[in-house]
């Protein structure tokens, strides 16, 4: 296929992916908007007003970046894992596998679908947060870069999950039992400075801590961890996930008999 034809194929996947999550907006866009609004009301406005300051900011200001990032991560991941597994489950992934498009086109088509949903939900949650607090983004470049890299990384991770999933339980295991606990324990609601030394050390093993704090640095200008370390870590994980996805496509693991 020529480059122009690959572009058409890529555009076709992306368009299909975006239309898919827009068509089922009640399942994809509305739930994070409602959930995050509740977080803002309960943790930010009601409980947060009694907590006082966290890391030099009001509690509401402190939790908003983490909650935005949590929405981006879960939605980027969920979009790719549910869409690609659905295609596998109903066998219409074969439409793609018999076509002459390259593995890169297939992979990045699904990844961009996940990134788009992650960013769109991120924008919705950010807009909702403005009803509760004001945001003065301190480092726009860092903010955009970390949110883009993270959504790509988790879209790739969702693709890997979809390839290995045998049923819909396998699709929800990682978001429910891995992503959500790690994000909750990754400093969304608290600064690790509040933890005893041992638990602060344990927290530093959690990759979500770096992602949440890098984004918080972009928005508020403060972080519990080194932001450069966060970027290197996300970059390495993204490259590793990409290489593994390409390996799965090239070998046809779980896709071709």
């Amino acid at each position: 296929m020529t480059l122009a034809e690959q572009w058409v194929a890529f555009y076709t996947i992306v368009r299909k992916e975006i239309r898919r999550f827009l068509r089922i907006w009640m399942q994809t866009l509305l739930p994070p908007a409602i959930t995050m609004s509740l977080y803002f009301v309960i943790f930010g406005a009601l409980i947060g007003s009694r907590i006082g300051q966290m890391g030099g900011f009001s509690y509401m200001e402190f939790v908003v970046p983490g909650l935005i990032m949590m929405s981006v991560i879960t939605n980027a991941y969920s979009n790719v894992v549910s869409s690609f597994f659905g295609a596998k489950f109903q066998h219409f992934v074969e439409e793609i596998l018999v076509s002459p498009m390259s593995n890169n086109t297939i992979l990045w088509g699904f990844v961009l679908g996940g990134v788009t949903r992650g960013l769109l939900v991120g924008i919705i949650v950010t807009a909702l947060s403005l009803f509760f607090t004001t945001l003065h983004i301190q480092h726009i470049g860092v903010t955009i870069a970390i949110v883009l890299m993270t959504s790509i990384m988790f879209s790739l991770a969702g693709f890997i999950n979809a390839v290995f999933a045998n049923n819909f339980d396998d699709v929800s295991i990682v978001p429910v039992f891995v992503l959500t606990p790690l994000t909750y324990l990754g400093g969304v609601f608290y600064s690790i400075d509040l933890l005893p030394e041992f638990w602060a050390g344990v927290s530093r093993l959690n990759p979500m801590l770096y992602i949440v704090n890098a984004f918080r640095y972009g928005v508020l200008g403060v972080s519990d961890v080194n932001v450069t370390t966060a970027f290197i870590m996300v970059g390495v994980f993204t490259l590793a996930a990409y290489a593994y996805c390409m390996h799965l496509l090239r070998t046809g693991t779980r896709l071709r008999q």
């Binding site: 296929m1 020529t2 122009a4 034809e5 690959q6 058409v8 194929a9 555009y11 076709t12 996947i13 299909k16 439409e95 793609i96 076509s99 002459p100 498009m101």
Partner: peptide, 13 residues
């Protein structure tokens, strides 16, 4: 959509 998307996978605008 099914038919048009399949054409797209083969690079047809």
């Amino acid at each position: 959509d099914i038919v048009v998307n399949q054409a797209g996978y083969y690079g047809l605008n």
